[in-house]
């Protein structure tokens, strides 16, 4: 069984000389759904990017553990599923081509059945050969969830997961989050009340400003 846990020690992030948050400590040991909240500009996206290893903190560190072994920074991307409004898929390719190229670059096996079932889950199966440029923003958002789940990650990071989604899409996403939350760590950064109702523990970024 894959057991992922996350430990943040004294995380501080500054942009230039402007402080975003300071001395952030948390431990996510159990599988479950965790939330990050805070007003606009409080650094939700920054924190989630730091957890994903996309940007580095100004000081402090974040440690990902898998089965009691620290995950090497170079390989961290293999264990992370990430969805965010500012994530943009390759628009000149179709959904299916996106999945082919991404799985090749990741170096994982191209798993036809899994991808088809994911496309089916997110109601994109009959549009899979259309170019992403022609998708609506809700469809693009759903494609991102397939991108986040395609390599069976052990931790999921969702920044505003339900933005641009209709009710049907939201329900699908909540169903998936609840399903994945049973055997993975799922972290949601959002201000939507319905998103946060799923979360057992929440970090309020306002508490770490001074």
């Amino acid at each position: 069984m894959n057991k992922h846990f996350l430990n943040a020690e004294k995380l501080t992030k500054k942009f230039g000389r402007r402080l975003i948050f300071k001395d952030l400590d948390f431990k996510f040991l159990e599988n479950g759904i965790y939330g990050i909240t805070g007003i606009n500009g409080s650094g939700k996206s920054t924190l989630i990017k730091i957890i994903a290893g996309i940007i580095s903190p100004s000081s402090g560190k974040i440690v990902h553990n898998l089965d009691d072994k620290v995950i090497d920074e170079e390989k961290l991307h293999n264990y992370i599923g990430f969805v965010a409004p500012y994530l943009i898929m390759y628009e000149e390719f179709s959904a299916w081509e996106n999945l082919i190229h991404i799985s090749n670059i990741r170096g994982i096996k191209f798993n036809k059945e899994l991808f088809n079932s994911l496309l089916d889950d997110f109601l994109l199966l009959n549009r899979k050969n259309d170019i992403v440029k022609t998708y609506s923003s809700g469809m693009k958002q759903r494609l991102k969830f397939i991108f986040a789940l395609m390599h069976s990650p052990t931790i999921l990071l969702f920044d505003e997961p339900t933005s641009n989604l209709d009710n049907e899409g939201k329900e699908t996403v909540y169903r998936i989050i609840n399903r994945e939350g049973k055997n993975k760590i799922v972290i949601i950064a959002s201000n939507e009340r319905s998103d946060l109702e799923l979360c057992s523990t929440k970090i309020k970024l306002e508490d770490y400003k001074k």
Binding site: A52, I54, E74, K75, H77, I80, L87, I88, I102, I105
Partner: peptide, 14 residues
Amino acid sequence: RGTSLILHLIAAPT
């Protein structure tokens, strides 16, 4: 096109 974030998430810098 803003797609460099995808590259961040699927491959190591080298």
